[in-house]
Design a protein around this nucleic acid. Structure first.
Lengths: 163, 163
DNA sequence: TATTGTTATACTCTATAACTATA
DNA sequence: TATAGTTATAGAGTATAACAATA
């Protein structure tokens, strides 16, 4: 019985996602050497570089990291002069993260390299397929990012497995 | 200037891949409670459960983990009675990994739950889109898995960023 | 000499809990 | 009382190097 009729890894969505994700990380790794924390640092810039500055916690949720990790990440990024912590006029507990001119400059600098790396990862797809794929992942991500139920595994589903 | 014309995270392939991948991990987490090391343990079963038993190193490459990690993983899986290390008749240094009947049984047991979790992750796509997406990720993964150049970042690309 | 697998160590990343200051 | 952010600690995960056995 051949593989495509079996439960082999090649047919596993999680395996494929993991392989592609690791491939992507490797591809952009070289491009993001100047950015503290690499990919994560760049994603922070991209996440905080929008129109309105946002709070640390909101950025942490978007990037899928803990708020404590965000503190360390911001420490590094701020020390590198790429972002700035500003007080939130609406809530004196919160801090708004603003991307500095140097941060924006760095983003522009790596843009071409990132595009190249992405094309490299999507290399085996046609132009149409790339478009569809990007659109699909993007939609799934926006959907997943919205519904953050944070079900912490191993609880209600245990009984359904216990025969 | 709106987001879809900017460098914001939502347009970033890496961000989307990461979000979807984490979403998947969360979704299958509850289903794979009985499997040691969770998703990784299941992928080992799927990877080793093919026709011919394979070597540890080959499995490690396919799963994207180090050979030392594979040792620990196999220790746990073997202790749980899910796999067995067998001597390789062709090379007395190598070990072949065989899935035990208990391992196969466990795979069958979690299959329905995994399918449900996958459908949950792909929830916002139509049937056609799901098919295309799965096919695309699978192709990319097979491609990436084949070309394992292991470029260890931060070397030749540094100068291209240095203005 | 190179490779498979193991072991031990160290390092990175992440999660947990406690704390301050605000709300 | 609850929340935003920080800090310190512990834990999981991962990588590194050294080793034994074999090719």
């Amino acid at each position: 019985m051949p593989c495509w009729a079996q439960n082999c890894v090649e047919n596993d969505l999680g395996w494929a996602l993991g392989v592609v994700f690791r491939r992507y990380q490797r591809a952009v790794g070289a491009v993001l050497c100047d950015v503290p924390s690499g990919l994560r640092g760049y994603q922070l810039l991209a996440s905080a570089g929008g129109q309105a500055p946002r709070r640390q916690l909101a950025l942490a949720h978007e990037l899928g990291i803990d708020r404590t990790v965000m503190t360390y990440l911001l420490d590094d990024m701020e020390q590198a002069g790429l972002v700035e912590r500003q007080p939130d006029p609406a809530d004196r507990r919160a801090r708004l993260v603003a991307v500095t001119p140097a941060g924006h400059a760095l983003m522009g600098k790596v843009q071409a390299g990132l595009a190249e790396a992405e094309n490299d990862v999507l290399g085996s797809l046609s132009a149409d397929e790339r478009h569809s794929f990007r659109q699909a992942v993007q939609r799934l991500a926006l959907d997943a990012s919205a519904s953050n139920h944070a079900a912490d595994a191993c609880s209600e589903a245990t009984e359904s497995l216990a025969d």
